[in-house]
Design a binder for these strands. Structure first.
Length: 663
RNA sequence: AGCGAGGUGGGGUAGUCAGGAUAUCCCGACGGGCUCAUAACCCGUAGAUCGAUGGUUCAAAUCCAUCCCUCGCUACCA
């Protein structure tokens, strides 16, 4: 079945905030996948680590008055602890700021340099004279050079959506202090991603995992690839070899972490990490669908360029929504794994089951406490838990042990079917399909015990009742083995209640069809407890409160003080003349008298709604202290106020002279 | 705007590539039965113009075209 060891990794959690449900959407299925395959006899290594570099961490650390290292350590510990509590068990959980990763990153960058895949280029970059530093990526805002709309430093987020290279943006401003940034020249280093188009196209055709990852990446490759600037002017990060003033871009050293964490793990076991990364490999990355580009394009190109093998599979999970709202920390739509879930005493098993069984792995998952508790109560508690408990209860009460004798053929078939279905589903990354198969076996058990009615047989034909109970216990035994990857804690409890002294995880799943021995049964206890409605309401209330609180905070943040308002110089202006701007459909060139010596020249986008002759003579409201802006080559010295799509002009109701202040 | 992923009873989902006769399964709702078990389990009922429109065909959820909506790439993000 296996042709070499499988290395499974998860997208690295970024150490600038706590673990939330979105993270778990990737980590729980990965952990399930690893647990299941291991118990199918595959050799699997499971590594992950925290991602510590990049500007957001530097800025957040500054805000909190701590070092980036301190901040990273804090959240690193947090994630490690949460994963342990959630039953997500990595063989190793490292840090990208660790020594191994610094070394491995430099080694890979040097390899790329040697092979000519990295070249220097002088770029103009935004520099904030007040903060006295270069402004990377998102710490700049300005105007998109392609479509003239406001944009962020690395992406035209409101307009055309183009990716912007550092230095491309026009009118850059520092996002931290608001100062106009200046452009300074600096030597940076670029990765020749554009040369990997053909390689990627072939590679992606054969890439295993989920189709969303493959298709999305193929689309990008077909559009053509641009070289990447892989250096940043920062202190925090992996120093670019030979240039201490530069660090490598976080998306270089973060995925290299996958290799470094394998190295660290292998070292501790006295093994060779190359076995997992060089030559034919079975590296499987579990990631969120937001970082497909990096894992399916940039990362394979980087690896290939440096002489490593590209990953075997990429499994991309859909994003999480909360109560039908887009996931958003600032708007309060977030469920924290610790604070909102584990700390409240809710079992990890419930959440693992819910995340795995709710919807297709690649689709968006809409979380709500109502559906969560509904599924827990009706599926886990009623179907699965109840079947196991009623079987054990009955067996214990009437026989005190597992009865001797055979297991019926239909029951064995049901078990084998479940094993086969789950196996197929897991290997296809259909995790919902896998939990469905598990629940189908529990449903088989329920149907079987109901139809056979051993509680009747025990009075008329005790031997027949024994045979029925034997079947039920065999199913419970199979369920314990099969549910372990989903519900590790519950599986361990069932295993003990079945009279086993050893550990369920040490048994291969194929033991499901090994006939159980006649052992003494301890007194069983119910497997799961229902979530009371009052409990669900409490959990909903926490979320609701957070959303309201966030709304309030946003409102306060948006409130404008009288001082801020008074900075705006709003005046009544009289339009002296108006004429169309040549070559433009939308623009009018206005001369407006605002009580100054000379009228102001204003370019206004209202030609579609007003004829020049309608405008002339009108009194309008104008912002007079706008920064002059060049529109269509004409410098506009103010802005005329208008409302809505139709540009309905704001005009004074009573006659006032030009230059009158608006208060 | 572009590219990618989606849209199937109240929620989730199978089926779509290789078109076929009552559209699958799980949960919820409703009714009945049963009682070993955590008011559970079993059986049954209702509920879907398969996002919209047009086309191809004897036949369309499925193929073709156009359009609409949601999400991702695109703050805070796995």
């Amino acid at each position: 079945m296996s042709d070499g060891p499988i290395l499974v990794t998860c997208g690295l959690p970024y150490t600038n905030g706590p673990c939330h449900l979105g993270h778990l959407r990737t980590y729980v299925p990965a952990d399930f996948y690893v647990r299941f395959l291991r118990r199918r006899g595959e050799e699997v290594v499971f590594v992950c680590g925290s991602d510590n570099h990049g500007t957001p961490i530097v800025v957040m650390a500054e805000n909190q008055g701590v070092t980036p290292r301190d901040l990273s350590n804090r959240y690193h510990e947090h994630f490690a602890h949460i994963f342990q509590r959630m039953g997500i068990r990595f063989d190793h959980f490292g840090m990208t700021d660790g020594e191994t990763n610094h070394r491995r990153t430099r080694s890979i960058v040097n390899a790329l340099k040697e092979k000519g895949y990295i070249y220097p280029q002088v770029v103009e970059q935004s520099y904030c004279p007040k903060c006295r530093r270069f402004l990377p990526d998102r710490y700049v805002e300005g105007i998109c050079p392609y479509c003239d709309t406001p944009a962020r430093g690395d992406e035209c987020d409101q307009g055309c959506g183009r990716h912007l290279e550092p230095g491309e943006i026009r009118k850059p401003r520092c996002l931290v202090c608001g100062t106009d940034a200046e452009l300074r020249e600096q030597e940076h280093f670029f990765f020749r991603l554009s040369e990997f188009g053909k390689f990627l196209e072939d590679y992606l055709q054969g890439l295993q995992g989920t189709s969303n990852a493959r298709n999305y990446a193929l689309g990008w490759v077909k559009e053509g690839l641009r070289d990447w600037n892989i250096t940043r002017t920062l202190d925090w990060g992996v120093k670019f070899p030979g240039h201490d003033e530069l660090v490598v871009y976080v998306w270089v050293d973060a995925p290299i972490g996958y290799i470094s964490f394998t190295e660290e793990w292998a070292r501790s076991k006295g093994l060779d990490w190359k076995r997992y990364w060089c030559g034919k490999n079975k590296v499987t990355h579990f990631i969120g669908s937001d970082i497909i580009y990096h894992h399916c394009i940039f990362w394979p190109a980087l690896l290939t360029g440096a002489g490593y093998s590209a990953p075997h599979a990429v499994v991309a999970s859909g994003m999480v929504k909360i109560d039908d709202q887009k996931f958003s920390k600032s708007r309060g739509y977030v469920v924290w794994t610790g604070e909102d879930y584990l700390d409240k005493g809710l079992p990890a098993d419930y959440l693992r089951y819910y995340l795995l069984s709710y919807t297709n792995h690649t689709k968006e998952l809409n979380f709500s406490w109502k559906v969560f508790s509904e599924r827990v109560n009706n599926e886990l508690v009623s179907t699965l838990g109840n079947f196991i408990y009623r079987s054990l209860f009955f067996a214990h009460k009437f026989f005190g042990k597992v009865p001797d004798g055979p297991v019926s053929a239909p029951t064995m078939e049901a078990i084998d079917r479940c094993v086969g279905d789950m196996d197929r589903a897991v290997r296809d990354f259909e995790f919902k399909g896998a939990t469905d198969a598990l629940m189908a076996l529990a449903a088989y058990g329920n149907g079987y015990i109901q139809n056979q009615a051993p509680w009747k047989l025990v009075k008329t034909d005790p031997a027949a009742a024994e045979r029925v109970v034997k079947d039920c216990l065999q199913v419970a035994h199979a369920l314990a083995l099969l549910m372990e990857p989903v519900l590790p804690d519950a599986a361990a409890r069932v295993w003990r209640m079945l009279g086993n002294a050893d550990v369920v995880e040490e048994h291969p799943i194929s033991d499901a069809s090994v006939r159980i021995a006649s052992v003494t049964l301890p007194e069983p206890v119910p497997l799961f407890e229902k979530l009371e409605e009052s409990r669900t309401r409490e959990l909903e209330a926490v979320l609701k409160k957070r959303v309201e609180w966030a709304k309030q905070a946003a409102k306060e943040k948006d409130l404008v003080s009288i001082e801020e308002f008074s900075r705006m110089d709003l005046r009544v202006g009289k339009v002296i003349s108006a004429e169309p701007v040549k070559g433009s459909k939308k623009l009018l060139r206005l001369m407006v008298d605002i009580g100054e010596e000379k009228p102001r020249l204003v370019v206004a986008g209202m030609a579609e709604f007003y004829k020049p002759e309608e405008m002339a003579g009108l009194s309008v409201i104008m912002v007079t202290n706008m920064k002059p802006a060049k529109i269509f080559g004409i410098e506009s010295q103010g802005m005329v106020l208008a409302a809505g799509e139709q540009a309905s002009l704001l005009v004074p109701l009573k006659d006032v002279p030009p230059g009158t202040m608006i208060r």
